[in-house]
């Protein structure tokens, strides 16, 4: 399909029950040649043991730093190892590996610098998330539409792919709080091309999501502030 070096970044925090099945799904996927790296974000359970016993390629952060810092470590790894495309892929088994080819296609064809795997377009995914979270997503999505004129429906999706330019940007500067919506906005605002691609996602099979009802309300307001704050500190290598 292409000769690009592609890396899947799999952040994992306390995913002892999910990480092996996630890894196996990535390993079985043969449509696109992929490398992978699991970022163990200082897990307190047996995630590290599972990774070591199964010889899964991974980095271990010395303590829990949060999803933003874990994913940024993956981008630093991708940049240091000269990857052309990096894909974020949750370690909790929610993302469907079979959509990787579709996700990276606009990047390979130079139609996008970043693609976002979306549950809310093309009606592919049956799993849509909880009501409160969907409401939060709609509010943030509308907010970004007002500020940029571009609608991103699944604005909190962690299933994303980026090209080499964005890998470099993210390796240097990546928000550790509310990373997905803030970077979606910042990338759009900096003049890069973003495309949403319909993908399938699953509900979590094991463990609890890190976002509950109270957090999701708090989340929306904090995202609004973080997005507005980005204007004071835009990406230096932005095209605009």
């Amino acid at each position: 399909m292409n000769n690009k070096k592609i890396l899947i970044i799999i952040p994992a925090y306390n995913e002892e029950k999910n990480i092996l099945s996630t890894f196996e799904s990535v390993k079985k996927y043969k449509k696109v040649k992929l490398d992978y790296i699991v970022i163990n974000d200082g897990s307190k359970d047996l995630t590290e043991k599972v990774l070591q016993e199964n010889k899964i390629n991974h980095l271990t952060l010395p303590f829990n730093m949060g999803i933003g810092a874990a994913v940024q470590t993956g981008y630093k790894y991708a940049f240091n190892n000269n990857y052309d495309i990096a894909i974020q892929f949750d370690g909790d088994g929610q993302h469907d590996i079979n959509y990787v080819e579709k996700l990276i296609d606009p990047i390979i064809n130079n139609k996008a610098n970043m693609t976002i795997g979306s549950r809310y377009i093309e009606n592919i995914s049956k799993f849509k998330s909880s009501f409160s979270r969907q409401l939060g997503i709609k509010l943030i999505s509308s907010f970004i539409k007002i500020l940029t004129g571009i609608k991103i429906k699944d604005v909190t999706s962690g299933y994303r792919a980026v090209d080499r330019t964005i890998i470099k940007l993210f390796s240097l500067d990546y928000p550790h709080e509310y990373p997905e919506p803030v970077t979606n906005y910042s990338i759009l605002k900096s003049g890069y091309k973003v495309k949403e691609v319909g993908v399938n996602m699953y509900a979590r099979t094991n463990g609890k999501s890190s976002i509950n009802f109270v957090k999701s309300i708090y989340y929306v307001f904090n995202v609004f502030i973080s997005i507005l704050l980005f204007n004071f500190k835009p990406y230096k290598e932005g095209k605009k």
């Binding site: 970022i39 980095l59 810092a69 240091n80």
Partner: peptide, 10 residues
């Protein structure tokens, strides 16, 4: 520093 440590260890 933690990120650098993890990358260097690798």
């Amino acid at each position: 520093l933690g990120q650098e440590l993890a990358l260097l260890k690798d």
